[in-house]
């Protein structure tokens, strides 16, 4: 087998195979995910090098289009690829292709560079607009409930409280009405932080479900 990843072996490339393989680029999008996964799990330099060699030159062409200057484009490549190296654990292959993840990081880096170059005082950071590099625990589940949370805060969900367990209700009341941080709630109730987080998530999820059924 010549390539690192052939058509039929996208799963579990052994260290041994990698070691004896020559540098050949993957042919399918899934293969990039596999390589990225190896970087995340094992800090695999060889896998990273394959990713780097494929994307760095292309990212430079991409960067040049809007940034115009060679130096800025190279800065964008460096920043993007450093993020790929350091934050590969944030890539979630169930959410999309590895190439898309890398593209979105580059887009965000480029956006911030363009903002910086425009010398505007505004602070519209790419991270606020496209949350690509947020830790997962802090990501979707944290933000998906904004609509629901606002109904909750206006007291419009009182009729749905009973769908939550009592301990979920207590935690949600403390975080939303008493404005305590999750850690404070954990300390007060003497339960792990993770339990607080999951009670909030499950409690809000139940109310969301109840509300949707109510609308149907």
């Amino acid at each position: 087998m010549m390539g690192v990843v052939s058509q039929d072996t996208k799963h579990n490339i052994s260290q041994h195979e990698l070691a004896k393989s020559v540098m050949v680029e993957p042919e399918k999008p899934n293969d990039w995910s596999e390589l990225l996964h190896r970087v995340a799990m094992h800090r695999d330099r060889r896998a990273y090098t394959l990713i780097f060699n494929h994307f760095a030159p292309r990212l430079k062409s991409f960067g040049l289009k809007l940034l115009k200057q060679e130096q800025l484009a190279m800065e964008m490549v460096q920043d993007t690829m450093l993020n790929v190296w350091l934050k590969s654990h944030l890539f979630d292959s169930s959410k999309g292709a590895a190439s898309t993840w890398i593209y979105t990081i580059a887009r965000n880096v480029r956006y911030d560079m363009l903002r910086k170059a425009s010398h505007k005082k505004e602070e519209n950071f790419a991270d606020d607009l496209w949350p690509i590099l947020e830790e997962r625990s802090n990501n979707n589940e944290h933000h998906a409930f904004t609509l629901l949370e606002n109904l909750l805060l206006q007291g419009e969900l009182v009729q749905f409280y009973p769908v939550m367990s009592e301990c979920q209700q207590i935690v949600i009341e403390k975080v939303y009405l008493e404005e305590k941080s999750q850690q404070e709630v954990a300390d007060e109730l003497q339960i792990p932080l993770g339990t607080v987080k999951s009670r909030i998530r499950l409690g809000l999820g139940k109310m969301q479900q109840a509300m949707e059924q109510d609308h149907d």
Partner: peptide
């Protein structure tokens, strides 16, 4: 974004050599 990433992968990659230093510096992080 998927489409745009696909376009990105189709861009030319002629300029290979100047990236060696960059790779080294990233891996040394």
């Amino acid at each position: 974004e998927d489409e745009l990433a696909f376009d990105l992968c189709k861009l030319d990659d002629e300029i290979q050599s100047p990236f060696d230093d960059m790779l080294t510096s990233i891996l040394s992080a």
